[in-house]
Each structure stands twice: as structure tokens, then as C-alpha cells.
Design a protein around this nucleic acid. Structure first.
Lengths: 418, 418
DNA sequence: GACTTTCGATCGGGCACTCAACGAAGTGGA
DNA sequence: TCCACTTCGTTGAGTGCCCGATCGAAAGTC
């Protein structure tokens, strides 16, 4: 067990500051008295903590609470523009960036199309650094300084070193992404982290689910749908990373020893059955524009959608086939992990009307726990943007976990551009 | 996220008391000065904490530290006999009990053979209560009072309610184990918890691994080997329970849509290929004593071992076949969870010489991460006793996480039986 | 307009940890 | 033998944090 750090009063304070920030994120503006009730802290402590957060610029007064008896409360609300989080994304066909404010709302998003495997790490990171610099310049004045930058990479990542160990699809190996990015952007190295795209996608989807409904989702499985399939697992509210951070490599589950050959050299990997390649092969001939790699993927997905909507039999058959094969693997995941939700990301998210049903059928049939252990299967609403959004949220988490990373001493002068 | 409790100074104290207890468990007897260095606390705080733990009877002086310059330190050591943990076990063919001291060493173990499905829940819990009462009577005087009792059940468990939701092999459904046991034994209800056998086995194996080697194992997969196959997953040092506690139901992963029918009604479940039934069928004819259900399982396993050691071809083939089928499933687990160790429990633990090798081969071939992501495959040394041991450890964890559950005010009179 | 209710600031108190100082208890050399 | 020297563990002052109680402030109610 690694939890071997002593607890001191500073940590106690940090924890309670974070508790208030979380409470405000979940419930919106609250008075100090309401905060005291919801957090379980005393009014006196809440007053002290709120004034601390005010000095850090993380919260501000937000009017007077509505009717009721007695003295009205002075509402305290998160100041979303106080800080920002930056998510960067290295994909096979593009690099992307997203910036969110403290509330998690996107304030900037951009994508730069490029052939990453052909460019190589050096020049790709050049583009990434440009994108980051442009993003920060563009949001300057709108939101406060970034509290973190997280780079999403589809591959095996050493998060503690900020390096990519192996990313076959990018043809990257042992790339010091954090170092290189810090050197190019001038951002401090300790602000930059690197993580797997499926992990970040899972975080983004979890945040999206918790933003809307009642019960917070603590157990979630996220599937990236692309040529390769990745998995992000959140269990008990925490990411499952594995002993050296390689968890979630789900695309290469062996589903059929006699199945088609996979890029990894083995046969019958799950992604040979449910990856984007499998869909495209099943639903279109080689000269079909749907299979034209020079076209934008979103556009090709819209074509598939249109055909399915018009009840084109070949397309429907292909989708049903993919959905069933997905269901077999999802059943394994649900049996093993008992998630509350399975989120279909990537290209799956463009086709939920045809994929979710066959998956659900397979899962209900294939899971031992009654009612599939309560697992829902849903399409992502973030689609291909999940990993950048998740990166920005991961960056914000630093503040949410420890608000003292934002310095004190900013009593006045906010982002009012002269 | 559920971590919404305010932190106060009492919690801080609890955390630091627990920190010292953990440090002493890991490093053995230490002086106060050494404790201060290892824990990161100040000498003054350590003195205060140690005297607190002394008043609770959890530690005691243990001589003077050896040579070196300066004043020798007064060693402080855990007092293993101060409290005890009780693990109870409901199995298909027996009920069992184990009691450990604070160090995790077994001080009592007993098994009562009975046909649990035939007896039904009521009478089974009668036996369990008898066993528990006998155990506590027998260890009275040897160790202190139990800080918890954990019941291991092979099935789906609602840990918060202490009930068994569904245990097909026992033919139990919605059995209030904790309540019933409390009523029969007179033990306070809040001391009793109920958990899945694979979860407890995983905890026991993790503790066993960390007891010996250097690096603590935080990511581990445990497989129960019986007629059914269960999985216990520890990720980042914490059990993966799933959204409603049904995680780890790994025996019913669909491995082959055309495979043999399973007791769950589906085809090709993993346990039809690697469960005890599969082994027995593959290695012996129906009239072979190995397949005589009236014989003790340990004894039958010894027969299989003997034949394999004598290079009986049919036995070797059977073991190789089981090992390969195990490897396919283990590869999935390793790809998804990237554990540091996969522990083979239950009947697998009796045959590691013939099972580990084919599994390793499959895993190395079937896992994307280089070198199988560092995953080792090992046979359990606890075997069928893992779940009771794990139950006792789970009970002890209450003290390890919060030493203040043991009351103060026991300055004198220890367990010196008149 | 007085009463009631609720809010939020403030103060004193208790608790936990830290630092610095000091006596205690050994070693090693003169 | 005696005296530095080193290290240990306790003690007391100091600081920071949370809490309960108190009190003035700011509304609604009668």
C-alpha cells in the first residue's frame, strides 16, 4: 500500500477546501450556511474556507439567496473563469486541443489535420506546441491561467515520466512528450502530464454523466472506437491503471483463435471484429467513398448513418454484426467489472441507434448478474472529442483535489482587459 | 465521487495512528526515532502517537535497539496478541473458520464438512455460528477480542447489508447472513461483514505477497479454482467491486459460442473449460476414484499430482489443455487490468508445476504490452484456505485503518490467564 | 414596530502537529 | 576514569485548524 504519507493540518485544510469546491461544482451557488450543512463542516470553518477560496479567486459572491424566513444568505459561487485546464490530443490523423474553464465548460477547441505517423514525433510535437500556444493566446483574457496541460496519446504511457512507451498506431516508441512540449512551449514541466486516450475519455464521460443526473457514476467502462479499440475503466471513482499503467488494452482480447489476423500479429483480436476497419469492410466495397481514407472520418460516418437510416440492408447487416461482436466483448467487461455504464466512444458514438440494441441483447444474455448487474450501454455524446475534454478535466482535477495550487494574494485585478 | 466527508483533527489523528501501525507491520520493531524518519512525522508526534497506541494495547516496548553511536533507541513493536480477526467461510462442501492475530498469523483454523446446498441457509448458519463460537472460545486467552468477523460466500453479496443476493452453487438467494449470525452468536452486528470469496482470497494473497518481498503489490488478480471460477481484482491497492458489488464474475466469460453448455444455461463459459469439472472429465473416466465426489478433494488432487509426476500421458494432456484454456482467459485479464501478479487459487494451487507454464506461454503470446506488462503467474500458497484467511485479514483491516476502534484504558491486565 | 428566524462573523477553547531545547543514555578516545 | 560526542525521547512553547457559543445583521411575520 502506497498511502504512507503523514497527515498534517495543511493537508486537512487542503482536503476541506477541495470539499467545498466539489460541493459548489455539484450544487451550484450556495450560501455559507447551506455549504456548512452540505459539507458537514461548521459555519465558522466554512466562513474561513470561503474567504480563503475568495483570496485565491476560485469563488466569488453571487447575489443573495431567495425567499424564506430569516436573514437571506449571501450566495457563493465558483468563478469558472478563474483558471483553465488544457487538453491536447495526438491522434493518428490529427492533433487537437481543448481548453475548459473551472466549471468544465469548453472555451476553446481546435483540430489540426496531419498524418502523425508520417510526421514522426518531433514534428508532431511541433504542431502540438503551436496548437497549445495558440489556444492559450486565444483564451487569454477569457479565462485564467492553465493549472495543467494533459496530452492524450493512443498507446502505452508512463504517466509518472510523461513519456510514451509504445504507440503502435503512431509508430512512436519511448517519446518524452512532456519534456519536448515543455521545451517548445515554455510551460513549466510539472504542469504537463501525458495519459492514455481511453483513460482520459473515460474521465470525460464520467464527468459528463455526473453533470446531468442524480447518482454519481463511480464505475464506468469507456470504449474508444477507431481502427483500434481501447478501454478506459473507472472503478470506485478511480481510474484502473494497472501495475505499470498498461491497463485497458482491450482491443487485443483474443476472441477467436481462427479469426482474422490482427496488426499485432495474432489472430482473432477483438478489434479485428469491431474496429473501424471491420465495419468499413463489412458495409462497403473497396471503391466506395465510405472507404476512402482521404475523406474526413466524420463525413464517412454520416454516409454510413444515412444508409442505415434508409434501411440499406448491407449496412444494417454490417452494423448488426459489429454490434453483436461488440456485445460479446462488452459482456466480458460487464461480468468482470460490473460497471454502472458502458460508454461507446469514437466511431461507435456516431451509430448508437444501430449498435446499442444488439450489444444490450448480448449483455443481458451473457452476464451472470441479474439484469446485467444494472449496467447500461450508451453512446457517447462527446464522440471523438472525449480525449481532449478528458485531458482538460484531468488538468483541472489538480485544482479540484488541492485548491491551494492556485496562489493567494490576488485581492483585486481580475481578467478585465484594460 | 463519494469522498464527501469533512476532515477534522480526529481523522488526522486516526490517519497517523494507522500510519504508525502500518509502518510497524512492514518493518517490524522500530525505535521512536526510526519511526519518525520512516513515517515522516516529527519525533514529538511519534512519541505522542506511540503512547496512545500503548494505552490501546496495540504496541509494547520490545527491548533496546542494537549498537551504533549515541543513546540506544527503545524499540516499539506491534503486540500481535492484542486483538484478533475472524474469517468464516461457506463453501459448497464445508464451512470453515480461521482466526488471526494482529500480525496476520493464523492462531486457529477448523473446517466442518457438510453439504451446504442440502442443509439450506438456516442450518448452515447454525453450523457457522457454532464454529465461530468454538473458535472464539478456543483462542480466548491466546489473543485479544475480535475486531471483526468476515464471512466468505461464493456468490453475489451485498456487503453494505451483509446479505447474500445470489449464490447459485449454494442455492442461496437473499440470505441475511450477518443478521442471522449475529443473532446466533450474540456478536454485535456491526462487527460482522459478508463478502465474496474471490474478493477475500485476493486480499489474502496480496497480504501474503507483501509479507515476503520488497515492492508492495497493488495490482493483483486472483482466480478461485473450483467447479466454478471466480475472480478477485485488486487495482491500485483497492478491491474492484463494481457498481453494485458484482464485479469478478469471470467464470462466465463467453469463450466459445459453440462450447459445452454451462450450469448458467449458456454455452462455452470459461469455467466449462477450466473448472474442476473440466479437469476431472479430461483426466479420468467416470469410475475413476479421482472423480468420486465422496472422496476428499485434497486427496483427489494428490492423486492427480501423483499421476502427473509419473508422467501419465492422459493426465499431462488434460493439464496442458486446462492450462492453455486458462491462459486464454488470463490473457484477457492481463490485457485489461495489467496486474503485477495473477494468483491461481483453489484447485489450481495444487497443480502449479503443470499449469503455470502453459498459462505463461499463452499470456506472453496474447498480451499486447511487452513482457506481458510485467505480469507474473503464480500458484497460491494458501490454496483453499485463502478465503478464510482473507476474511480474517479483512476484519483486521478495521484496526489497521483506524486504530481508535480499540478502546483506551487498558493500562494493565493483559491476557495472563490466572 | 416588535418579534422571530436565519445568516455570517468573531472569539475562546481544544486538539494535533512542529520546532527547539534539554536531559538521558550510550560510545569512544584521552 | 573521565569527558566529549552522538543519538534518543520528552517537554513546553508556538502555530494552525476546526468547533461551539455568542452576537450583531438582515430579512420576514404579526
Amino acid at each position: 500500500m502506497g498511502h504512507s504519507r503523514p497527515a498534517d493540518q495543511a493537508g486537512l485544510r487542503r482536503g476541506n477546501l477541495a470539499l467545498l469546491v466539489r460541493t459548489l461544482r455539484e450544487h451550484g451557488a450556495l450560501s455559507r450556511a447551506q455549504l456548512a450543512v452540505r459539507s458537514g463542516l461548521s459555519k465558522a470553518t466554512v466562513s474561513s474556507l470561503v474567504s480563503d477560496l475568495e483570496l485565491r479567486g476560485l469563488v466569488h459572491s453571487a447575489g443573495i439567496s431567495a425567499g424564506g424566513q430569516g436573514r437571506p444568505g449571501q450566495l457563493v459561487a465558483l468563478r469558472p473563469t478563474s483558471v483553465s485546464g488544457v487538453g491536447l490530443d495526438v491522434h493518428v490523423g490529427h492533433v487537437g486541443a481543448a481548453v475548459t474553464d473551472l466549471a468544465g465548460d469548453i472555451v476553446f477547441r481546435r483540430r489540426f489535420v496531419c498524418d502523425v505517423p508520417a510526421l514522426g514525433p518531433e514534428r508532431t510535437i511541433d504542431h502540438l506546441a503551436e496548437l497549445a500556444t495558440a489556444a492559450l493566446a486565444e483564451v487569454d483574457g477569457l479565462v485564467g491561467p492553465p493549472v495543467g496541460v494533459t496530452v492524450s496519446v493512443p498507446g502505452l504511457v508512463d504517466t509518472s515520466a510523461g513519456t510514451v512507451t509504445l504507440a503502435p498506431r503512431l509508430r512512436w516508441r519511448d517519446v518524452a512528450v512532456a519534456d519536448e512540449l515543455a521545451a517548445r512551449t515554455g510551460l513549466p514541466l510539472d504542469l504537463i502530464s501525458v495519459d492514455n486516450d481511453a483513460n482520459l475519455g473515460a474521465m470525460a464521460e464520467q464527468a459528463a454523466m455526473n453533470g446531468e443526473s442524480g447518482d454519481p457514476v463511480t464505475d464506468l467502462v469507456y470504449l474508444t472506437g477507431d481502427f483500434g479499440i481501447g478501454g478506459g475503466v473507472i472503478s470506485g471513482g478511480r481510474l484502473v491503471r494497472g501495475s505499470i499503467g498498461f491497463a485497458g488494452e482491450i482491443g487485443h482480447m483474443g476472441m477467436d483463435p481462427l479469426g482474422p489476423y490482427c496488426s499485432c500479429g495474432r489472430r482473432g483480436c477483438w478489434e479485428t471484429r469491431v474496429g473501424l476497419g471491420a465495419l468499413l469492410h463489412a458495409c462497403a466495397d473497396p471503391d466506395d467513398p465510405v472507404r476512402d481514407p482521404t475523406l474526413d472520418l466524420d463525413q464517412r460516418m454520416r454516409m454510413v448513418r444515412a444508409r442505415a437510416a434508409q434501411r440499406d440492408q448491407r449496412t444494417l447487416d454490417a452494423l448488426h454484426q459489429i454490434g453483436s461482436a461488440l456485445g460479446v466483448g462488452v459482456s466480458i467487461l460487464v461480468n468482470l467489472l460490473n460497471p454502472a455504464v458502458v460508454v461507446l466512444g469514437g466511431y461507435f458514438a456516431a451509430l448508437p441507434e444501430w449498435l446499442v440494441e444488439p450489444i444490450r441483447n448480448q449483455v443481458v444474455a451473457g452476464v451472470l448478474a441479474p439484469g446485467a448487474g444494472g449496467a447500461r450501454v450508451v453512446g457517447s455524446r462527446l464522440g471523438f472529442t472525449a480525449s481532449t475534454t478528458g485531458g482538460a478535466l484531468a488538468a483541472l482535477r489538480r485544482v479540484l483535489d488541492d485548491p491551494t495550487v492556485v496562489p493567494l494574494n490576488q485581492p483585486e485585478d481580475e481578467e478585465a482587459p484594460a
